[in-house]
């Protein structure tokens, strides 16, 4: 029942746009729907990265704990975005905390299952990797822009 509805909803997510339906169906075998309440933690810095998420609704904040005890948000992802790339890169460990800031619905993929399917069929692996690389590239570009602190006061 769950898998059936996922094969219907997954192709609508931008991450899977243009994917072979057979591949989506294959990967759907690793997926399940999840629901997060405001302030619910999705994962913590340093924990093993065991999942990959497609956000369907709501918003997740990526945050770094600060020495003062608080934390600052360094990025947010929301409907149409993906959460997490650490599941794909050894040593498969989260680099940030992820926390829902509002009611959030997402699809969670089991990382081990996903990696196994990517390895078993290089075509599937390549398709997934290309998408993830594209997202990483875009985020890196945005991060570099923010590093410039373009709205700050320039100091010569």
């Amino acid at each position: 029942m769950t898998i059936r509805s996922l094969t219907e909803t997954l192709p609508e997510h931008p991450f899977f746009q243009g994917f072979d339906p057979a591949v989506i169906e294959l990967l759907a075998g690793c997926a399940r729907n999840i629901h997060l309440r405001p302030d619910e933690l999705v994962f913590r810095t340093g924990e093993p990265a065991q999942h990959f998420y497609l956000i369907r609704e709501g918003r997740i904040a990526l945050q770094v704990p600060e020495l003062s005890g608080g934390s600052s948000i360094i990025d947010t992802v929301e409907a149409g975005d993906v959460l997490g790339v650490s599941w794909l890169v050894p040593p498969y460990r989260w680099l940030f905390d992820a926390r829902a800031t509002v009611e959030t619905r997402a699809v969670s993929f089991d990382a081990e299952c996903l990696r196994a399917k990517c390895e078993a069929d290089p075509a599937v692996g390549y398709a997934v990797l290309t998408r993830v690389a594209h997202i990483m590239h875009r985020r890196l570009e945005a991060a570099r822009m923010r590093m410039l602190d373009v709205y700050g006061v320039r100091r010569a």
């Binding site: 608080g70 948000i73 360094i74 990025d75 947010t76 509002v102 570009e141 945005a142 709205y151």
Partner: peptide
Amino acid sequence: TVDNAPHSWRGRVGFVTSLIPR
């Protein structure tokens, strides 16, 4: 969207160009 935010912020964090696709 903002470049940096404290924990209490419920809105978006990210560069403004990330808003264009949606």
